[in-house]
Design a protein around this nucleic acid. Structure first.
Lengths: 230, 230
DNA sequence: CCAAAAGTGTTCGAACTACACCCATGA
DNA sequence: TCATGGGTGTAGTTCGAACACTTTTGG
């Protein structure tokens, strides 16, 4: 084991980041996974991740990993928690920080993702993952639910314009439960964060549903939780 | 810089834990600080912390540090977040995980704390701390407020028996705002987590206030947030 | 015309706020 | 007896849950 050769005489550790990447497609919440291409457990299913380098923070490392896999910059990214059981990695001791990331499926580079061997899996069908990655997924989903309770998620997962039904379906996917359409609509509009466009989506209904978009410059953090709606 | 000599060929890092230790005394929320006894910045004010060793998880490391300083085991301890800016430590690159800890002042070893050079400071008077420790304090306080919104904090900070006024004062200290005494009382009792003892505190009022204690075996996690009370 | 989704309105009840008011007792 | 904190009661309001109802339009 390596003791530091620098100022502090203390053990050093491998530090990794693992990203729980959420996307929303076909009315479903999905996760970006890939088949591990290095030993140990080569070929088994894993979150996307990588090791923290000397010249980068953990957030930088997570951003770098996501850029390499999706071609996207400026991804929504937030720390979930650190995992550090001594034997969590089968090969060597690795401390890993789990991140939650939100991806807009209309923006990421589909070819790049495919080339990197990554693929989307519905959160309801996440397979057995390597190490403690299933735990990371659970924590990240809980994180997403809390965030969505306070912050009106949608900007990060939906296209620029979307109908209120689409937003509701997203929330139903996140919380894994139905919301009353009428109540949902009223609650959302009362927040005053969206503006209606003079354009309708005509795909999903005969009447047509107005598109909405997030208002610019409304970085309001809502003091209280948004969602108690059933 | 040391590349791993083990399985993975990747850089290794110093990893530390820093504990934001909350205590409650004299109707005030306090933090346990100490004057740093090693360079760099020897003598400046700091959170209690230490380096993660090879055979321990970060939680183990935090527990070890707290045991060394307070003599207590089984302290409430939870991860807040990781800090990893490359130059956050003046001497060498250190990734640190901040923890929030809750201490009952009637339990910790006062002499030991004194001997270790640690001391309590009211949260409202926290001085300039080393590195990014003030940020850690802010995050930990926010953490404590969120926890207390959902979980009825008090078990971790108050003595076994306490009056509802004491509990209210604790909440006022945590949230830095007053609560209506009558409404607070009704809300708390409606949760059904406390039981009244046949014993009164006669110090603080002529009438005397009943002591309460947490019911045994009530590990109920409340689904919704507890506190909206004003 | 009718089915189906968009969108509005209405009622009920739970829960929080504000505040009045009674209680017990030591000085 | 009265000041003080403990403790109870209550009216008003807000807000979510449930659900009925209206609107629009393609088939």
């Amino acid at each position: 084991m390596s003791k530091s050769t620098g100022f502090y005489s203390q053990p050093k550790h491998l530090v990794a980041v693992d990203c729980v990447v959420f996307g929303y497609e076909d009315d479903e919440l999905k996760l970006l996974l890939y088949n591990r291409d290095l030993e140990p457990a080569k070929g088994s299913t894993s979150l996307v991740g990588g090791f923290v380098q000397e010249d980068e923070s953990i957030e930088d490392a997570a951003r770098r990993v996501l850029l390499e896999i999706t071609g996207l910059e400026n991804i929504f990214l937030e720390q979930v928690s650190a995992f550090s059981e001594v034997s969590r990695d089968l090969a060597e001791r690795v401390i890993s920080i789990a991140f939650a990331a939100l991806i807009r499926v209309d923006e990421y580079n589909h070819e790049l993702v495919k080339k990197m061997g990554a693929y989307w899996v519905p959160v309801k069908e996440v397979p057995q993952l390597i190490f403690d990655h299933n735990q990371m997924v659970d924590n990240a989903l809980e994180f997403l639910q809390k965030k969505s309770s306070y912050d009106l998620t949608g900007k990060e997962l939906l296209p620029d314009k979307f109908t209120l039904t689409e937003l509701r379906l997203l929330y139903e996917a996140i919380f894994q439960r139905p919301f009353d359409p009428g109540n949902f609509r009223k609650k959302i509009l009362s927040l005053n964060l969206l503006e209606r466009l003079n354009e309708k989506d005509r795909q999903s209904s005969k009447k047509g549903a107005f598109y909405y978009q997030f208002k610019k410059n409304e970085e309001i953090t809502i003091g209280d939780r948004i969602f108690k709606i059933h």
